[in-house]
Amino acid sequence: MQRSIAEKVFNVFNIIGFFLFTLLMLIPIMFVVKTSLDISQVGEVQLNLLPKEPSLLFYDMVIHDESVYRPFLNSIIITVLGTSLSMLINSIGAYTLSKRELPGNRFFIYFLVIIPMLFGGGIVPTYLLVRALGLIDHLPVLFIPSAANAWNMILIRNYYWSIPTSLAESARIDGAQEFTVFFKIILPLAKPVLAAIALFTGVGYWNTFMAAVLYIRDSRKYTFPVKLRELIILGGDANKSFEEMLMSMGMDPNEYFLSVEGLSSAMMIVSMIPIILVYPYLQKYFAKGIMVGSIKG
């Protein structure tokens, strides 16, 4: 097919344009990587993408300073427990939703999807409830209230619907109870959708921030993003300054002119690593993930 000159010019510009766009995405991240690895003197900014004095000092601090690694562990705990609990509850509940002929099915949809979409107590009444329950400063508050998720249940239910009924039917004829049918036949067949939703749920828990800001005061219960924000905004810890953190690492703050930016950069990278690790799998499920937002009861 003959292509006009205008089209060729457009193609070239389009390719160059996307190249620049990709650089615009990558360079800021590369600068953060550099800052996290560089312990050269503060004060002079350079455009190099390689560290002048490479060192893993800041990553060492992430691993060894309790005020940093504890939030990291907290994030891991809520990610693991939150994802497991959420998947367990939602995959089982979705089976009930998939029974169209079950009396009360419409009620469940109204109760779980439509009414919460229209009415809600809002931030303050929910906060007051959590406080009344004595859940403030307890890690479960970060994953139990959000464990049941109607959208995910609907997504899983739609997948159950796509499983041929003949399989479950033959098991029932063999005398299997509904429980057995679900755990032995339906659940194993729904693995793809469960894996996809588990990944998205996991990333969500890993990034837990807003709930922690609302319900966590005790710095030992912080999640990793909350700790990171504290370092970025306050330039240190409420209880322990960056200099003290350096000293506990056996460094003399007067000898090394290090800035807290190095530590926060290292934390940013650490926070991104798990996401980059699961990213290839996430990418596989993008299309399904997008449907989370668009499918309705």
Partner: peptide, 23 residues
């Protein structure tokens, strides 16, 4: 059995969405 299976989401929604509503 089916009602029991959906009970946990119902309870969680009741506690964290419905109880705060009158608030």
């Amino acid at each position: 059995m089916l009602y029991l299976m959906i009970l946990p989401p119902l309870i969680l929604y009741y506690i964290f969405h419905y109880i705060p509503m009158p608030g």
